[in-house]
């Protein structure tokens, strides 16, 4: 009996240690979901279908066409901005630069910034903005497309965007960064104006990269 109590205490201590934890942390999956029942090889199977980012087609700062297919095999972060934005965009992209610098050297992580003001943000304007921001290569794409489609697409990223003549710069938009996995599902939303939340985004990207489910390229 005398030996059991210390032994038990030692076991408790051991199990409390975090290095001994073998259950991997997984990120939640956001958005709508539905149960789909189908017949597979004569058996009835019920599966959960998650909300995914629909098809899109844009032009990036190099004038190249970027579609949802361009993101196949990549984890990516999306946000909505405009280059003449006087309010929250500068701080968003100051924080996004931290994400860029962390993942610019490989790792299959991309950043997509959709312009919500395509009439002003031409390819040339986006290129100048990218140069001044100090970004190069194909890690961070600044995208120009049809305004209505961008507004609709924002909804599937669970981000609110709209035009408002009363707002500073003429648009209201939330400064959220949205994390998308290789299956095009939403795995996290982060306030892009908050440096701490953006640090969490960087940690979450690494968690997602380590998720075995992400090693299957779809």
């Amino acid at each position: 009996m005398r030996i059991i109590i210390p032994a038990f205490a030692a076991m408790l201590l051991w199990s409390a240690c975090s290095f001994n934890k073998n259950d991997q942390k997984r990120l939640p999956i956001y958005g709508n979901r539905e149960a789909v029942t189908k017949t597979l090889n004569g058996k009835t199977v019920t599966d959960t279908v998650y909300q995914t980012i629909p098809k899109f087609e844009y032009v990036n700062q190099y004038g190249k066409t970027i579609t949802n297919k361009s993101l196949d095999g990549s984890i990516y972060v999306a946000d909505f901005f405009f280059t003449s934005c006087p309010s929250i965009c500068p701080i968003m992209h100051r924080n996004m630069l931290n994400v860029y610098n962390e993942f610019k050297n490989g790792g299959n992580v991309k950043i997509l910034s959709y312009s919500i003001d395509p009439s002003h943000d031409s390819v040339a304007v986006l290129k100048t903005y990218a140069d001044k921001l100090g970004i190069a290569g194909d890690t961070w794409w600044l995208l120009q497309g049809k305004k209505e489609e961008t507004y609709k697409l924002a909804e599937s990223y669970l981000v609110a965007v709209k035009e408002d003549k009363g707002a500073e710069g003429g648009y209201v938009h939330s400064g959220y960064f949205v994390l998308i996995d290789k299956q095009k599902r939403i795995r996290g939303t982060y306030n892009g104006t908050d440096e701490k939340e953006v640090s969490k985004l960087i940690t979450d990207i690494k968690t997602l990269q380590a998720d075995p489910e992400q090693s299957i390229v779809q």
């Binding site: 006087p86 309010s87 929250i88 500068p90 701080i91 992209h93 100051r94 630069l97 903005y129 140069d131 001044k132 921001l133 100090g134 104006t193």
Partner: peptide, 16 residues
């Protein structure tokens, strides 16, 4: 001012 010019007045790359 801070959103654009930064909490340490550092600006933003070559933009601000």
């Amino acid at each position: 001012c801070q959103n654009c010019h930064g909490n340490e007045g550092q600006g933003l790359a070559a933009l601000i």
